[in-house]
Amino acid sequence: MFHSRILVASSVLVLVPACASTVLPQQQLMDTQGAITSAEELKGDENPDAKLHLQFAREQLAAAKEMMANGDEEEAERMLDRATADAELALTLARTEQLRAESREARTEVNELRTEGVEAGTPATTTASSK
């Protein structure tokens, strides 16, 4: 009975690293996929730079999965790192594009408000530099 327990425990110890090495790091995989999805939701495909890196991320993610399936673990993990880096870059580029539009709109609103104030004879007394 005792020997059989050791045998079972040993089998588990052997199997755990075996299982861990046959799949990509799950958290990183989810983060990467999440970044890709977020970039897509932010219309990253409409920005040329973001679109390019989104495409790289998707291709490299697929390649990493294929490499892992083929047993090329180290290469698969490095490919996943590449995919992650591209996905995060694509997401930031998409966010930047969105924020650029917001910034421009906010500045336009300030300028319109100032113009309306002058026309209404109630110009703002504080002056701030326009960007």
Partner: peptide, 10 residues
Amino acid sequence: TTLESQKNNA
């Protein structure tokens, strides 16, 4: 700030 200032002026 501009809105507040204009409101005060008005």
